[in-house]
């Protein structure tokens, strides 16, 4: 009962935190999709130098903890007068871009080679066949892992609390320390995350269903 009153008492602040979490996630994943697509193209370009560039990028992201990346972006970009919000967003986008690049590369390469050949045999340039034939199919195939990555990004955004952004997790720990009751607020914030993830999962499912209607 105590927990429930705490929940009711704090929800306006938590909702604000949730909005920030939501914004951080949506904007960073949106940017990460473009970064991912770009590096996926480098990886399948069959140009050695470009492949290396993509490999180095992915190596850097996978080889360092996200919290380190966020701090580097934070101290690096705020020094350039970029806002706290955008430095975190770009840090998260940089991080997720690498995983999304691998998702896209895999889904593009999973499309039957015959699809490209059929396009080329009709007089399409490689670029047109990629855009009209390969990518629409690859996107569809990328949806489940992309949705998964989205949920990971949502939860990873909690690391923005380390640089003082009042997203969900920071709201919880602030209440926790102010009221000497971490456990209640951690349980409460867990519920907020669960609800957000649930909403995203349902959305992703709906998109997948719609896309699958032609198969």
């Amino acid at each position: 009962m105590d927990l429930f009153t705490k929940f009711i008492d704090t929800y306006p602040v938590f909702l604000k935190g949730m909005l920030l979490t939501f914004q951080l996630t949506i904007v960073s994943v949106f940017i990460a999709i473009f970064i991912g697509l770009f590096f996926a193209f480098l990886k399948i370009s069959r140009v050695k130098v470009l492949e290396w560039i993509a490999d180095i990028y992915i190596f850097l992201v996978r080889g360092t903890p996200l919290v380190v990346q966020i701090f580097i972006f934070y101290f690096g970009l705020t020094a350039l007068d970029i806002s706290q919000f955008w430095s975190v967003v770009l840090g998260l986008a940089f991080h997720n871009g690498a995983y999304i690049a691998e998702i896209f590369r895999g889904s593009i390469q999973s499309i039957d080679k015959g699809q490209m050949e059929a396009g080329r045999s009709l007089g399409m340039t490689a670029g047109l066949a990629m855009r009209r034939i390969i990518l629409p199919q690859a996107f569809r195939r990328a949806m489940p892992p992309l949705g998964n990555q989205f949920i990971i990004a949502l939860k990873d955004s909690s690391l923005a609390s380390f640089i003082g952004m009042y997203e969900l997790f920071n709201v919880a720990t602030t209440y926790g320390s102010n009221e000497y009751d971490y456990m209640s607020y951690l349980l409460i914030v867990a519920v907020y995350y669960l609800v957000l993830v649930l909403i995203f999962s349902i959305l992703v499912n709906m998109i997948e269903k719609r896309m699958a209607s032609s198969d």
Binding site: G114, E117, A118, G123, I133, P136, Q137, R140
Partner: peptide, 21 residues
């Protein structure tokens, strides 16, 4: 590409575009 426009090709495994009617 221009030459291929004039040369139609039919494949053993069809290779229709599955995302189009």
């Amino acid at each position: 590409n221009k030459v291929r426009e004039k040369v139609g090709m039919v494949f053993q495994h069809f290779h229709l575009f599955p995302h189009m009617t």
